[in-house]
């Protein structure tokens, strides 16, 4: 459900940019979603379909890019792909791991046409 709030935020940020840059058209928008961000990509896609209607993003190509979560092991220093919060270090089996990426929820870039 919170994906719809996020979709609205995306439209708002894009709208600000549209007016701020005095552009004619937003052609594309790239959005990065971490695999541990708490957002279901399909739900966000679905929410965006509705949220972009009659906005500056209506005709834009929307790309949702997965950012694989990575963690750093506090015990042995190994860096590895983390697939859920309960992941343990594959090298030493320690659960003391710090997530270093994969919580991203951001608009990476916009392609615009003046």
């Amino acid at each position: 459900m919170h994906e719809f709030s996020l979709a609205q935020n995306i439209v708002e940020i894009a709208t600000e940019q549209f007016h701020g840059h005095n552009v004619r058209k937003i052609e594309a928008i790239d959005i990065e979603i971490g695999t541990l961000s708490g957002v279901v990509k399909e739900a966000l896609e679905f929410a965006l379909e509705e949220a972009v209607k009659n906005t500056v993003l209506e005709k834009a190509t929307i790309r949702l890019i997965d950012i694989q979560a990575r963690a750093n092991c506090g015990a042995c220093g190994n860096t590895f792909d983390m697939n859920d919060f309960f992941g343990v270090c594959p090298a030493c089996q320690s659960p003391q791991c710090e997530i270093i990426s994969g919580k991203e929820l951001k608009i990476k870039s916009l392609r615009i046409d003046y």
């Binding site: 996020l6 935020n9 995306i10 708002e12 940020i13 940019q17 840059h21 052609e27 959005i31 929820l105 951001k106 608009i107 990476k108 870039s109 916009l110 392609r111 615009i112 046409d113 003046y114």
Partner: peptide
């Protein structure tokens, strides 16, 4: 005047 804007903006920034 580039056509690509590197925004790097958090969706939850507001």
């Amino acid at each position: 005047h580039g056509t690509e804007i590197q925004l790097e903006k958090d969706i939850l920034s507001k």
